[in-house]
Nucleic acid binder design. Structure first.
Lengths: 225, 225
DNA sequence: CCGTCATTCAATGTATTGATTGATTGATGA
DNA sequence: TCATCAATCAATCAATACATTGAATGACGG
């Protein structure tokens, strides 16, 4: 048994801390407290959170051991507890920024290169197929599909697309392909799909390019040599 | 306004991530996933979490962008998403351990100074009395009790204690007191109580010290001047 | 001692989260 | 095509978390 105890209480303790950080108000309060000792009312003003609510969130932070208090006259001053709290905050910030970056890149990419918005590369296709983010649509006639097609592709010939639209899941991006760069079937399909408000893109290479690549043609894993 | 926007959406995004980490089951699942790609059923076995529940927590992790999936035949394999996820987990672990250390030290302190464990200060007595955490036990003879006693105290003379043990609530800590530092009645009482497995401590000052303090003697609030 | 200020407590209604059950989807192989 | 297996979905109930309100506490200054 190489893994540590699965029911080790440390998991609950970590979860407690994480849950305490799991509310924007508390993060805002922590951020201000990290700049130096502050009283409750100052914190309400800096954060815009109602007084009693601020107090409750502060107590929550205190219970979790993230802040400490001392009294100064009528006021109660909050400060960060010791321990590597700022490390945790920094790591979380960093992870959140990483995620934002990724999203921003996606948007910029598609905005600045409109063909990218339409066409999808083989690499992106494979990657997002693995992530289960897209559904592949083969718009060639049924006979051609039967003779061979990309793994996982659904076959709806372009002239049946309008009426069979319901077969395509709404929550995924639809990637249409046909015979290759000169073939216009998939472009037609895109026009139909987009008119119906479906997120959709085109795999320009089509079936021929796929064949010449080293990837499997049918029914096998995407990731085998 | 020297502070960055208080309502910056990054706070919500960080909170999302933190909240996702705020459940022991998800932490356990993440830990296993971090060791390598795993299918849902494997994870249920490793973690002991029910199947549908495991699946739901995994989806939660996926929504928050902490894991990614790919399909392999019938199975769906989960792996860590990229980004500094392990940093966050490491930072949290480290903070939780820090907290454990501190608690352990506290315990050791009280262990190494057993008198601390036995005697209770006037301040702690008042505070925990307010919190309803303790029950006060006057072990002097009935006549002395009748002549004046600490507010809220129950009277059970020490020689009746064994047989009247049932009068004392099991869920509270019992604080025994008698005439003062030289008086051994409360020490005897402690021996009896502890032999019966009751959590108990001693208020060494006894009734005399209480009288000389500014606190009320009987039937009144603890907090009026 | 009394009134005031800063904070906390207590109580309430509402919203969210988590566990469980049984049904459903999707891929596989006979 | 059907039976099977892995995973997800959908619906439900119980438990928690949040925000808000008004009352209570604790320290201060007159």
């Amino acid at each position: 048994m190489k893994n540590a105890d699965v029911h080790h209480p440390i998991f609950d303790e970590i979860a407690d801390i994480a849950r305490t950080l799991g509310h924007a108000h508390r993060l805002v309060l922590l951020r201000h407290i990290a700049d130096g000792e502050l009283a409750v009312e100052q914190l309400t003003q800096l954060s815009g959170i109602a007084l009693a609510n601020t107090s409750q969130h502060l107590q929550h932070l205190k219970r979790a051991g993230l802040v400490q208090t001392r009294r100064d006259g009528k006021r109660v001053l909050y400060r960060l507890a010791d321990g590597p709290i700022e490390n945790v905050l920094a790591a979380l910030r960093s992870l959140a920024n990483h995620r934002r970056e990724q999203i921003r890149e996606l948007i910029n990419d598609t905005m600045s290169r409109p063909d990218r918005l339409e066409n999808i590369s083989r690499e992106e296709l494979v990657r997002r197929m693995r992530n289960d983010e897209i559904v592949l649509l083969d718009v060639r006639p049924q006979e051609e599909y039967a003779a061979g097609h990309l793994p996982g592709a659904i076959n709806i010939p372009v002239d049946e697309l309008e009426e069979r639209l319901a077969e395509l899941p709404r929550e995924k991006v639809i990637v249409a392909y046909c015979r290759g760069v000169q073939c216009v079937l998939s472009a037609d399909a895109l026009a139909i799909l987009r008119a119906r408000g479906r997120a959709s893109r085109r795999f320009e290479g089509g079936f021929p390019e796929w064949l010449t690549s080293s990837l499997d043609v049918d029914g096998m894993n995407y990731d085998s040599g």
